[in-house]
Structure formats: C-alpha cells, structure tokens
Nucleic acid binder design. Structure first.
Lengths: 220, 220
DNA sequence: TCCGTTGTTGTACTGCAGTTCAACAAGGAG
DNA sequence: CTCCTTGTTGAACTGCAGTACAACAACGGA
C-alpha cells in the first residue's frame, strides 16, 4: 500500500558479470517440484516447526516471495507435499507389483521393499508425523489420505487373495492387508523412536512370522 | 529494563467485591499439574501448533507469565506433558495387571484396555504425534520414552511368558510384546486417520487373531 | 492487625511467522 | 534489437511467538 524502497541497486554489476545472474527462470511446474522437494527436506530434518516460508525458501535457494507466487499459501504447499510423498510410495509399490513372477514372489518383494530404505527410513519420521497431524484436521489432506490408502490396501489385498487362492485357503485379503499395513507402520514407528528395541531385520522377521502364521511359509 | 506501565487500575473495585478475586493462589505442584492438564487439552485439540504460551495459559485460565514461572520454558512443559501422558498409561496398565485371576485373564484384560477409551481414543492422536516428533530430537524425551517403553514391554512379556509356560509353548515373550505393541499402535493410527477402514471392534478382532495364531485360543 | 513470602499478573521486548505487492529482469516472440 | 510476458525478488506489514521482569496481591504467621 505504502511506497516501497528501491528494488535493487547493484544493477550495473550484474550487467558486467553475466555468469552470476540474479536468478534463473524456470517453468511454473519445475519450480513447484523444486519447492516441494525443498519442503520435504525441511520436514525430514526438523519437524513441522521447520515447515516455514523462510526455511523452505532458503533450502530451495529462492526468495521468500516465490512460495506464495506458486502456491496459495503455506498450507497449500503442505498439501502438495503430501501428494508428492504418497505418489512416491505408490509408484515404488506399483513397480514391485509389476515384477514378473508368481503372486508369492510379488508378496515377498513388497514386504522387502517396505522394510528397506528409502521407505523404511528414519528420515521420513517427522515428515509423516507432521502430515498425519494435518490429515486429522485438514479435509483436503484427509481425502487424499483416504484415496491413497485405499489404493494401497487394495493392491496388497489382491496379491494376498491370489496367494490364498493358489494355496486353497479362505482369507479376507482386505482385512489382512489392513493388519499388515498397521503392523509395518507400528514397527517402523518403534524402530524410528528407539532402534534399540528392534532392528530392521527383527522387524522383517516379525512381519514374515505374522503373515506366515496365516498363509503358510513363504519362499523368501 | 525500561519502565513498565502501571500494573492494574481497578484495585478499588476488587477491594469492594471480594467474591471476584483476581486469582487464587495454589501450591506450586497443584499449579504445575493444572498447567500440564491444560497443555494436554491444547495438544489434543490442535496440534503442536496449539502448544503455545498463549493457548495454554488461556486454557488453564491463568496469565501468560505463569508458565515461565513454574517451568523453565515451553520445552520444559512439553517434557512434563510427556511424563504425565506415559504415567497415566502405565498406571492404567498396572491396574489391569493387578487384576486377580490367571495370566490368560490378565492378557485379555490388557488387550481390551488398550483397545478401548481412553487409551484407544482419537483425542490423543495429535498429542502423541507431537510428542513422538519431539522424542526423535530431544534427548531428555528420548530417555523418558526408552524407560517407559521398556517397562511397558517387559510387563507384557511377563504375562505372555506365563501364558506360554502354562500351555507348554516355547515363545519369546519379549519379541512377541514388541510386535503386539507395534500392531496396536499401527491399528490405532489407521483408525484415527480414517475410521472407515477399520472399526474399533475389527481392530480388536485383528489383535486377537494375531495373538491366537501364536499362543492358541483365548477365553475372551 | 501488620508483615513477609511468593504465587500471580500484565506488559515490554525481541524475533520470526505468513502475506502482500511494486519493482525488477530473464528469456522468448516478433 | 525491442517489446512483452511472467517468473522472481526483497522489503513492508501485521500478528503472534517466547521470555524477562517489575508491580501486585493472596495467604499464612506473628
């Protein structure tokens, strides 16, 4: 509203040295992705407390005004981060489902995928805690969570049902997938909070033990 | 450092009306408990974003300065909140362990306790998410978590070992307790984030199913 | 009744949050 | 080369965070 100070006073210098441009223009989409990536890095290092305009802009190497240019606000950026995180997970899962081989082999592949980096990784803890806290309150994130979780669960259920069919077992794959996801999330959480109580290998063994108790031995 | 404005100008009015005292003095310990309770209420409603001097003071019905009088700072209050939360859970668990009856009955009592309010409750979600995020970073909270988790796990392991002994089964109660805790935490998380995917009863059934797959049927 | 202890208050202070916006400039179209 | 679109900048603005602290007052003891 009021008058602004002069924008910049070192124009002459910039003219001379073309190699040190003030900034490089990028397409809106590329810049959005870059900001989302920077935001994820901030979340994984700090907590939701690091999810600020200043931190993210510094991390991305841009000015603070840029975030509000590409997103409606900081909340909108958080929603975009959630989409990005779930998309990354889903695509990793889909890749392992596309693996050639028996349903049993797919099952083993998925289990191992989920219990190994980058999914089973401490650097994601604070990111997910922050996002879950937001899911519980933000309708847009709640809808996104519901959608991504549903797809995830259904994909698992299909593999489980197929293994059960081959073994002539009667199992509710959907319910089984729910328990499975809960178990892995819980083990991951315990491991993040205190790696002493359970190692990654012990967590993996525990998951296999629970699953094999229902559908029999798997060829790991 | 600089001069302050006059503190309050309505002293005369207060003199007249003794029933509306400006405040009531409490012992340091009672006030601390009151502030901790107010802080928990703030966390459960909002998120860590609601964990501020202003919100907590308003919730407790005291002035903002009081928190820094009774705690070293807002971080110190958060640590006190963590202690309070874990103590509440532990005492509930200890009470159910003190129940007369067989080890099997104790096991059933604990399971039901953990899958019913007030423990299995949505109002705790944001509180725990906030606290876990802090555990991962704050050494004091990490130590507190380690201690409380260890005691919790050991108590469960003892009950499991006893049931296994009676049934002449060879089971690692400690490892079993770890899985059990992870499963319940994970189910609780899923249920908090989207109650549609699993009901409280379904969660309870799932826990029983996993446990009974290892140690046989339980008399619920 | 007075008096001292100390729990309690409210404000000043500093700093950083998110948003807005006018000025600037990079890069392509002509 | 010139113009124009629009990505980008940086600072002003408002508001609220945590802390420090001096003034006040409740309550118990004398």
């Amino acid at each position: 509203m009021a008058g602004r100070k002069p924008f910049h006073a070192i124009t002459a210098k910039q003219m001379k040295n073309k190699s040190s441009q003030r900034f490089s223009r990028q397409t809106a989409d590329a810049r959005r992705q870059s900001l989302i990536a920077a935001a994820i890095r901030c979340l994984s290092r700090g907590s939701i407390g690091n999810f600020t305009i200043d931190h993210i802009a510094a991390e991305a190497g841009v000015s603070r005004g840029l975030i509000n240019h590409h997103f409606e606000g900081i909340r909108d950026l958080l929603a975009a981060v959630y989409d990005s995180m779930t998309t990354t997970m889903r695509s990793a899962g889909d890749a392992s489902l596309a693996v050639d081989g028996s349903a049993e082999k797919q099952l083993v592949t998925i289990i191992d995928l989920m219990l190994a980096p980058p999914i089973f990784s401490k650097s994601n803890l604070r990111t997910w805690l922050a996002l879950w806290g937001e899911v519980a309150v933000n309708p847009r994130l709640k809808a996104a969570h519901r959608k991504s979780y549903h797809g995830y669960r259904q994909a698992l259920a299909r593999v489980i049902d197929e293994v059960a069919r081959q073994r002539k077992l009667v199992i509710d794959g959907g319910a089984f997938a729910t328990v499975w996801i809960a178990l892995i999330d819980g083990l991951w959480l315990e491991w993040c909070l205190d790696s002493r109580v359970i190692s990654r290998e012990a967590a993996r063994d525990a998951v296999y033990r629970v699953i094999e108790a229902s559908i029999g031995k798997l060829q790991r």
